[in-house]
């Protein structure tokens, strides 16, 4: 079950606890490039915590992770971002003071070449860079169908649009790995369909894409490989058909139906 280190984003034996609370216990997963991987599990299963471990916001007490053969252990979130790993946030991480376009532009920070001088004094080079990054950010917004909202403030926009913007920001920098935390939460049926199409269009052979979702239909249709997390343990992984038939998964989801 353990894949060879060197391909894609790999986590092995991650354990994470807060005080007495064990959030993740010996969790392993392999995210292969070119495959859309899903991660499901009931509320509080530890999905976001696993995201945080993969992106360096949390550091597990045990376990290792690597990306394309490079060990990630000990790297902070900014360093991992520099490796080409981006993510979206379940609880919409928008800066209220910035327009939607500017919020997406921030996702391109690591591409910045212009120095401090041109931050205060307009220079041709900085102007050109600005146009280029704006074009990329607009392209990402268009890809998700929300270009018309570019110049609005987040507070003027519905949560569905902000959710999509969150994803636009993650894809704008042309990353090598994208981790999306509940990208379809708060979207209506049409928006969800559009999102799914956009994600499929996005897929390239060298891209790692992980999607956390509560929407089973979406996950089953979108993903080729699915991991199931429950109480911090990985209880199953396999193709959608395998997951649908897995007895532990059925038990968890039937027993937990009242939720969400």
């Amino acid at each position: 079950m353990m894949a060879t280190i060197g391909s894609g984003l790999v986590a092995e034996g991650i354990s994470l606890g807060f005080g007495g609370l064990q959030v993740l216990s010996d969790v392993s997963l392999t995210l292969k490039p070119g495959v859309i991987t899903g991660l499901i599990g009931p509320n509080g299963a530890g999905k976001t915590s696993l995201f945080n471990c993969l992106t360096g916001l949390y550091h597990g007490q045990r376990g290792h992770s690597s990306f394309a053969g490079t060990p990630l252990d000990g790297m902070g979130p900014a360093q991992r971002a520099a490796c080409g790993i981006t993510r979206s946030f379940q609880n919409l991480a928008m800066c209220p003071e910035l327009s939607l376009l500017e919020n997406v532009l921030v996702g391109l920070t690591l591409k910045r070449r212009s120095g401090w001088f041109s931050a205060f004094v307009p220079t041709p080079a900085q102007q050109a860079e600005r146009e280029d990054t704006e074009r990329r950010a607009m392209a990402a917004l268009s890809e998700l169908g929300i270009a018309s909202a570019a110049h609005h403030k987040p507070s003027d926009l519905p949560p569905g649009t902000l959710r999509l913007a969150e994803i636009a920001r993650a894809i704008a920098s042309e990353p090598r790995a994208i981790l999306l935390d509940e990208p379809a939460a708060g979207l209506n049926a049409v928006e969800t369909r559009d999102l799914m199409r956009a994600l499929k269009r996005l897929m390239r052979p060298d891209l790692v894409l992980l999607v956390v979702e509560h929407d089973m239909d979406l996950i089953m249709e979108l993903c080729e490989h699915i991991y199931v997390l429950n109480f911090g343990r990985m209880i199953a992984n396999g193709t959608p058909a395998e997951i649908r038939a897995h007895p532990d998964v059925i038990r968890v989801y039937l027993g937990d139906d009242a939720d969400d």
Binding site: L57, A78, A81, T86, A93, L98, T109, A119, V121, R130
Partner: peptide
Amino acid sequence: SHFRKSAQGLALLMAQAQPRAAEAMGIT
């Protein structure tokens, strides 16, 4: 006023409003 639109200005505003998200975008 130019600084407000610059990449550095945007990065600083983001780091202040959403420090963890900013870290994940490479802004320490």
